[in-house]
């Protein structure tokens, strides 16, 4: 149990997907301008991360590994994720239109998001069990959400700031991301020591 909590908290704070692993930077820079789109995007990411892990982990363990097909991992995972996202979208549209309305637009965008493929491959590389993988995916998604939401606040402040012309737009966003990332480095070592 403690191990699961450690995995969850380290995925959220220490190995934050955006701020320390650099996965999913495109949506981070593209969709974090407004709070509501940042929330919608991160909810969709959490959702797809969990489903993708729930499907790819058994595929790797029960299909690829016993047949010595480990080298097909990349191809199989990206295809499964792409098909899954399409399927989820169709199902949501038909049966849960309210959820589809709030998440639907973000779903196709994250098929080719490196955070999703990254979390499924990392779960295998780290040798996590199924439960640990699911917790890790949840934590990674929550970390993504935390960074997105925090950063949408930072960006709304930046909009009105008086900054040099050549820094307007993307450069100042990246510098702000650097400072946000610096603050997350403060979490290093905290979580392991909390349960020691």
């Amino acid at each position: 149990m403690i191990k699961l909590i450690i995995i969850l908290l380290s995925a959220v704070f220490i190995n934050n997907y955006i701020l320390s692993r650099f996965l999913g930077i495109c949506p981070f820079l593209g969709v974090s301008k407004k709070l509501d789109s940042a929330t919608g995007m991160s909810l969709a990411v959490i959702f797809v991360m969990m489903i993708a892990t729930a499907v790819t982990w058994p595929i790797q363990m029960f299909l690829l590994n016993p047949n010595n097909l480990g080298y097909l991992q990349t191809i199989v995972f990206i295809l499964v994720i792409a098909a899954l996202v399409q399927l989820v979208e169709i199902v949501l549209k038909r049966y849960v239109p309210a959820l589809h309305k709030s998440l639907g637009v973000y779903l196709p965008l994250i098929t080719t998001n490196c955070a999703i493929l990254g979390v499924t491959i990392l779960n295998i590389d780290e040798g996590y069990t199924f439960a640990e993988s699911m917790v890790n995916s949840l934590g990674s998604g929550l970390g993504f959400m935390l960074a997105m939401i925090m950063f949408s606040g930072v960006r709304s402040k930046l909009e009105g700031a008086d900054i040099p012309k050549s820094f307007k737009g993307l450069p100042i966003t990246l510098v702000a991301a650097s400072i946000t990332s610096l603050s997350f480095m403060g979490f290093g070592g905290v979580i392991e020591n909390m349960f020691a």
Partner: peptide, 11 residues
């Protein structure tokens, strides 16, 4: 480290 990456890229 991670913050340096964002910073250099921004610059």
């Amino acid at each position: 480290m991670a913050p340096g990456g964002f910073f250099v890229f921004g610059l």
